[in-house]
């Protein structure tokens, strides 16, 4: 049933077909996070792959910068109902991280961990095959602290809360363990095209 007197301003058809259900296009780049920006020093920055609590491989910033670079451009979708089109990112693909570490994924699930103690879960299959990177650049410039710099996860085919800011590592888990938002009612997978915002969607 329609809302009395509401006509709205639907976006052009070309925009509507690119928007997942319930999303609105924004030209801004909103900032969302649970707390303050952490203080991160590139001298001590470290990225670690773990299997449970066991470290598999760590990279310093200098070592990380020597890894092969990946670029991706496309649309991103936040669970708070905004989508941003044609974003451009650069970083290191998770495939290249694994190759450099010389390891195969030990389990099917991963938990991304941020310097702010934020966590979020992603099935490992969604991080490989060129579907995710640890992004260090946005729109041609080093990623700002507000947007998760120096390095954030980028999993653009899922809602953006999965793209953890200020990434310090990826941890393989035996089972699919919910992260910060997933433990607070957000969907375990978060596919914007199936509108998986909250548990039960």
């Amino acid at each position: 049933m329609s809302t009395r007197g509401f006509t709205g301003r639907p976006p052009p058809e070309a925009t509507r077909t690119r928007l997942p259900p319930g999303q609105t296009r924004t030209e801004d780049f909103p900032v969302l996070q649970i707390g303050p920006n952490p203080r991160i020093d590139l001298e001590t920055w470290c990225f670690t792959l773990r299997a449970g609590s066991r470290p598999l491989k760590s990279w310093s910033w200098t070592a990380f910068e020597r890894l092969p670079r990946t670029r991706w451009a496309g649309d991103i979708h936040c669970v708070t109902q905004w989508s941003k089109f044609d974003t451009r990112w650069e970083g290191v693909s998770v495939d290249d991280l694994l190759a450099d570490a010389g390891v195969e994924a030990p389990t099917a699930y991963a938990l991304a961990e941020g310097y702010d103690d934020y966590t979020t879960n992603v099935p490992f299959a969604d991080l490989t095959g060129g579907r995710a990177m640890v992004a260090t650049h946005y729109d041609g410039a080093p990623l700002s602290l507000d947007h998760g710099g120096p390095a954030r996860l980028l999993v653009p085919h899922l809602y953006f809360w999965k793209s953890a800011k200020w990434l310090k590592g990826l941890r393989f888990t035996q089972k699919d363990e919910g992260g910060f938002w997933e433990m607070r009612g957000y969907h375990m997978y978060g596919d914007p095209w199936r509108e998986q915002r909250f548990t039960g969607d």
């Binding site: 924004t26 780049f29 996070q33 649970i34 707390g35 303050p36 920006n37 952490p38 103690d117």
Partner: peptide, 21 residues
């Protein structure tokens, strides 16, 4: 939030919510 962290507050005791770009 930067001022409060600068004043010595433990970051994990601070929650933030933002609107706008």
């Amino acid at each position: 939030s930067n001022l409060l962290v600068g004043a010595g507050l433990e970051p994990r005791t601070i929650r933030t919510e933002r609107f706008g770009g």
